[in-house]
């Protein structure tokens, strides 16, 4: 890793990380490709979930053993929860099984877009932070919701790029820039909707602290190669942000010096 990135650490609830690419663990073609993809991504944090065990298969135990072997930090989610009560209960269950206070809090309000229920999200975040959880709320770009989530005790926000699994990228760049500008000191992780490495680079160039990718890697033709592509895009985007991007302008400005150009005295033919 370049020296310039070594000191540029991602800080989340007092913990520091060198990678700014978080990955999900779902939808991979096989456990082996999941492991290889996490390694290729250089991810230090992966998301996991709790689901019903079915048929005595003990499939969950095999998955959990695989994740533990990778030595990454887990961020359990409350994916699919449609109420505050179910999200809080799922978070409490996740804390016991995964032995972590971290929770990616999802309270889904609308099933077509999987848009967060921001009212329920704030309520659930407030309950969970009082119980000692370190909450990573899956939210939108809404500034008022962001303010209320911070007021509820969240120290990290996870705004969507676009609906979960859509691959549409950053649907509302203006609102994302606005969110970044309003909360310059809050770790902001773009979560959901990123479909291509260029989307991730764009989010990082805007100054977001990290991105979380699942479907775009897992459902790629070659997930391991795509994981590497995202790692490079995130690093490139972060370097670009740190290096201070030039301002775009409407009119052209010659990059080659105008003074001394041959035929500069000639009129247009």
């Amino acid at each position: 890793m370049p020296v310039s990135l070594n000191k540029d650490r991602l800080k989340l609830y007092g913990a520091e990380f060198s990678s700014r690419l978080l990955t999900g663990t779902a939808q991979y073609p096989s456990p082996a490709i999941l492991s290889q993809s996490i390694a290729a991504a250089g991810a230090e944090i992966v998301t996991v979930s709790l689901r019903r065990e079915s048929g005595g298969s003990r499939a969950g135990e095999g998955f959990w053993a695989l994740i533990r072997e990778l030595g990454v930090r887990v961020l359990p989610n409350t994916a699919g929860c449609l109420s505050v009560k179910d999200a809080v209960t799922t978070a409490q269950m996740a804390r016991e099984v995964f032995d972590t206070p971290w929770i990616k809090l999802e309270v889904i309000g609308e099933e077509d877009t999987l848009q967060p229920d921001l009212f329920g999200l704030v309520e659930a975040a407030s309950i969970l932070t009082r119980e000692g959880f370190q909450v990573f709320p899956y939210t939108t770009e809404d500034l008022v919701a962001a303010e209320k989530l911070l007021g509820a005790g969240c120290e990290v926000l996870m705004p969507w790029g676009s609906p979960i699994g859509s691959g549409r990228g950053l649907n509302n760049p203006y609102a994302l820039r606005s969110l970044r500008a309003h909360f310059p000191d809050v770790p902001l992780i773009v979560d959901a909707g990123i479909g291509a490495p260029s989307h991730a680079a764009a989010a990082m160039e805007m100054g977001f602290d990290a991105v979380l990718i699942n479907t775009a890697i897992a459902k790629a033709g070659d997930p391991v190669q795509m994981a590497r592509a995202f790692a490079l895009a995130v690093e490139a985007g972060r370097l670009g942000y740190n290096a201070d991007l030039m301002q775009a302008r409407d009119m052209a400005a010659p990059s080659t010096p105008v003074i001394g150009r041959a035929f500069s005295d000639s009129a247009r033919a």
Partner: peptide, 28 residues
Amino acid sequence: SFVRKTDRVKTPLNEGDEVEILTPRQGG
């Protein structure tokens, strides 16, 4: 409602109860 591992033995079951038993899984 969540029931801690240590509380399971003192949590009686009644007719019609709804129990969830969850295990680690892949997630996004």
